[in-house]
Write a protein that binds this DNA or RNA. Structure first.
Lengths: 205, 205
DNA sequence: CGTTCTGTTGAAAGAATTCAAGTCCGGTGG
DNA sequence: CCACCGGACTTGAATTCTTTCAACAGAACG
């Protein structure tokens, strides 16, 4: 959302980047790989995640067209990134960006902007994990409606498993939370992946 | 740790900042206040947190001397910041920093650096919340030993309540996790606030 | 039209919280 | 110096929430 505004103002990455196409589950980068680039989603959806010792996966974030990712890395990546659905990403070399930033305060400002935004987003997503199962799902849906410009309907481009891994729950708990919200008339289903939000307030928790 | 290295290379904030002294629980900034400055801890410990609708508090991070905070803000703060113990912080105006960054690529680079580092830290702390209660506490202790330069002893400058709010648990659960780790001989207590880590591996989870 | 994958639901087990005592510690005043 | 107080911490038992395991329903696809 906000990153779209930024990129329309300043499409630098589009200009210096190369394009990479990814099949579903295609790997953008792996943990511990050298972090040579930053990325922008063009089409599709990219997921960043960590593998827990328990075997479970923790989905840190989903990135949609216009979003930048791979910003947190120092010299090596700390997480994994892969395509949640077939996707296209723009890849911009850090070296190139840095040397541009050395010459142009606007470029530097831009990098700082998207990183700061990403930081804020990470903090807000972290707050989800302090809530109960139902509230996590409710808040998650609420966030999705905001991404969709505040409309009342949400299309879930991700599976229940993806939502569960993102929210630190099981698919069953996600499912139960959704039926619970339906029972409260807070949401209703058009289909398994298409949800209408009736009462915003009762999603908040 | 890493931020200390950065600041020793580049003590810009120290130069342009004013100092502010805070009593325990003294407020640095509140949610929704205009975000005019960024901050650096000089002495003591600063906590950033959110208030949940349930009445509970979610402690997002503890900042120690050398650490920068308040970086995630756009025009208004999204969280609260207060002193966990009596503290001194350096306050640098964003306007000043931004105009310096417009002239000096080093300053811009510095701001990007600390923001990127903070982003990575936020992501890593988020991962804690995907673990079980015992593992959260264990990993938390492990992180503290890293901050202390990798030593075997940890001094908890924060109360059980603070730890609980940070890890999204109750004080009772934190306490039980600690006794559980003690029973496994992973840690031992010198006092309630002084812990010795015996077996790193059994803290990991 | 079945096969398969995704999602839902139910019952039992497990994990964390709540509520209620109790213990330990540091500080204060006698 | 000791006794006592209050706050921080621990422990136990009952409750609540989430997961696990197992069975079922529904949509997608050949």
């Amino acid at each position: 959302m906000s990153s779209v505004a930024t990129s329309s103002r300043f499409d630098l990455v589009d200009q210096i980047a190369s394009r990479r196409l990814l099949a579903r589950s295609g790997v953008v980068f792996r943990k511990n790989e050298p972090a040579t680039s930053i990325y922008k989603v063009e089409t599709g959806c990219i997921r960043t995640f960590a593998k827990l010792k328990s075997g479970r996966r923790a989905d840190l974030a989903f990135y949609f067209p216009g979003d930048y990712f791979g910003l947190e890395a120092r010299d090596r990546h700390v997480f994994f990134a892969e395509a949640a659905v077939p996707s296209a990403v723009l890849v911009a070399k850090r070296r190139t960006l840095n040397s541009l930033a050395n010459k142009s305060a606007d470029v530097a400002r831009f990098l700082l902007d998207i990183t700061g935004r990403e930081l804020q987003r990470a903090q807000e997503m972290r707050l989800l994990l302090y809530l109960s199962a139902s509230d996590r799902v409710g808040q998650f849906l609420l966030n999705l409606t905001k991404l969709n410009g505040g409309g009342r309907t949400v299309h879930l481009s991700m599976s229940r498993k993806d939502i569960a891994d993102h929210l630190g729950l099981t698919i069953e708990s996600v499912s139960r939370a959704l039926t619970h919200l339906t029972a409260k008339c807070a949401i209703s289903f058009d289909s398994h992946r298409q949800i209408r939000v009736n009462i915003r307030k009762s999603l908040a928790g």
